[in-house]
Design a protein around this nucleic acid. Structure first.
Length: 497
RNA sequence: GCCCGAUUAGCUCAGUUGGCUAGAGCAACUGACUCUUAAUCAGUGGGUCGAAGGUUCGAAUCCUUCAUCGGGCACCA
């Protein structure tokens, strides 16, 4: 028997429901239909069809059957498409052959196309009365249970298509992500930014401090890296004459995974010629407030029982003032690492890292992450970071220990990192050399020397301010998602079985 | 990498102190039914209890190892 051959070819045989559905394929063919059709011409999406006037004729819709309610010679069913869902009705007396065929071959989950007219049921629901229907595609495996949907976190990640079909809140979450990206794109385009693309496979993983994924280029026979940030290429574009550029850049970091970190994530970066970091900060506040208004309809949101207010003028506070306020330590009074270590010890603050292996900059960063960052809830610009944490940022003209930089912190998360870009190639070379030294000294996060980028800089760059934002994090905040995987359609999973 | 928890039918879940043939709802199958929307009613089939070992007269249940997932720690945005 043909059916047996089909089921033999799959590891999924032995499932009764699947066998029955494969047998139905033959019945569909016998009736002159294809079990997997080529096309269907619709006149309406389901959402629009459900708003049509009573007695509208020749309405053609298509979708996936989500529920069937049979009453002998009457069937109600629910069709679902991307726009929404709608009830259809088949009456045995009116279309005897079509009706019988439906009862014999159709299962929940199948795709069908329906033609008919709009009427109202006795309970007042606008419904498509089917005058004829077409089989479009068979589903061999049953959909998850109709009331509870798909609940298992693992299944939702591995089989997101089922999660999307069954759980409306999942689909809504991704629709929101899409809308957010559209709103940002439009805002940037309206401000004369252009979207460009830069390489994902790179000789040097530069532009951030992170552990890269290594790969190998066969025909060139060299090791290469997946990008950890698009930064240096976007700045090359500015050097080449682009004035304002941006990229939704998928980036890859070979580091631990937890609810707020992904191995591959989307970093939106933009760069603007002739801006400094303060121009950038002003623009950022307007952009993010615009996103809140357009996507969430409010400047207030609740994330995991925490109320976050985007509506006020956002606080701006320097790194050193923040740390002074939260720990009593004035980092400006400690220009060496040793004196800072002493101060931290005196205050009785314990950092869960090996203090002695860190340089002054990283020590300050650890102090900040320990005493300050977790308590920042409402959007706050933290500005003027230590120089040695920011090898690509412009040195402050009045204080050589800090850079013209800001981070936007929301709910303890660093969502945006930005600065006045370093455009002095001699200073840049010195900074990268310092980084390289730190790397050789055991600092695995330190940046590498990047001669190709320095070559570009030596040919000249205008003043620039640039910016990077974790798209996944912002959308997680807007959708009240605790795990970043909840806002990624197909998150990376270890192979099962 | 370390610690804690989870894994039972296609899906959602019960399963007592280790003790009859591992249960329910939905889904499926057979039948009834012309207004339901979690339709209803009657009946039927469906399980390598994540995997492999072990303890025991007897294991879904106890022990060991492994796999996958979740949470936490560490690292990072």
């Amino acid at each position: 028997m043909k059916n047996k051959d089909l089921s033999m070819s799959s590891p999924l045989d032995g499932l009764d429901q699947r066998k029955v559905r494969i047998e139905k394929l033959e019945k569909i063919k016998e009736a002159g239909n294809l079990p997997f059709a080529e096309r269907y011409e619709r006149t309406h999406y389901l959402h629009d069809a459900s708003k049509l006037a009573i007695d509208t004729k020749d309405v053609r819709v298509a979708g996936r059957l989500m529920a069937i309610r049979k009453f002998g010679k009457l069937i109600f069913a629910t069709l679902q498409d991307y726009s929404g869902s709608m009830q259809i009705a088949l009456v045995g007396k009116e279309i005897p052959d079509e009706f019988k065929h439906f009862t014999k071959v159709v299962d929940i989950g199948d795709f069908i196309g329906c033609e008919g007219y709009i009427y109202t049921t006795q309970k007042g629901e606008i419904t498509l009365k089917v005058t004829n229907w077409t089989f479009l595609s068979k589903t061999l495996l049953p959909l998850p249970e109709k009331h509870s949907g798909l609940k298992s976190v693992e299944s939702c990640y591995r089989q997101r298509y089922l999660d999307l079909v069954m759980n409306k809140e999942t689909m809504d979450r991704f629709k929101k992500r899409i809308k957010m990206c559209q709103v940002i794109r439009r805002y940037l385009e309206d401000a004369d930014f252009v979207e460009i693309e830069t390489p994902v496979i790179q000789n040097k993983a530069s532009g951030a401090m992170a552990t890269p994924f290594k790969t190998h280029h066969q025909s060139l026979d060299v090791d290469m890296f997946l990008r950890i940030a698009p930064e240096t290429y976007l700045k090359r574009a500015i050097a080449g004459g682009f004035d304002r550029v941006y990229e939704f850049a998928r980036c890859f970091r070979n580091e631990g995974m937890d609810p707020s970190h992904l191995q591959d994530f989307t970093l939106l970066e933009y760069y603007c010629a002739y801006w400094n970091y303060e121009d950038n900060m002003n623009f950022t506040e307007k952009l993010i407030k615009h996103v809140l208004e357009k996507v969430n309809g409010s400047y207030q949101l609740t994330y995991n029982d925490t109320n976050i207010d985007f509506g006020q003028e956002w606080k701006r506070i320097s790194f050193s003032d923040l740390i002074k306020q939260d720990s009593g330590i004035d980092i400006d009074q400690h220009s060496t690492k040793e004196s800072l270590v002493q101060a931290i010890k005196e205050k009785g603050i314990t950092l869960e890292v090996d203090i002695n292996s860190l340089g002054r900059g990283n020590l300050i960063d650890q102090l900040y992450k320990k005493v300050s960052r977790p308590s920042i809830i409402n959007p706050t610009f933290v500005i003027k970071q230590p120089l040695d944490l920011s090898p690509l940022a412009r040195m402050n003209d009045d204080n050589k220990l800090i850079v013209d930089r800001f981070q936007l912190v929301i709910n303890g998360w660093e969502v945006i990192n930005a600065y006045s870009e370093l455009i002095d190639p001699l200073d840049q070379r010195q900074r990268l050399e310092d980084q390289n030294q730190a790397k050789e000294g055991g600092d695995t996060e330190a940046m590498e020397m990047d001669e190709d980028y320095l070559l570009c800089m030596e040919h000249g760059m205008p003043p620039i301010s640039g910016w990077g934002m974790g798209i996944d994090r912002l959308i997680a905040l807007l959708t009240n998602s605790e795990n970043l995987r909840d806002v990624v359609l197909f998150p990376l999973m270890k192979q099962d079985h």
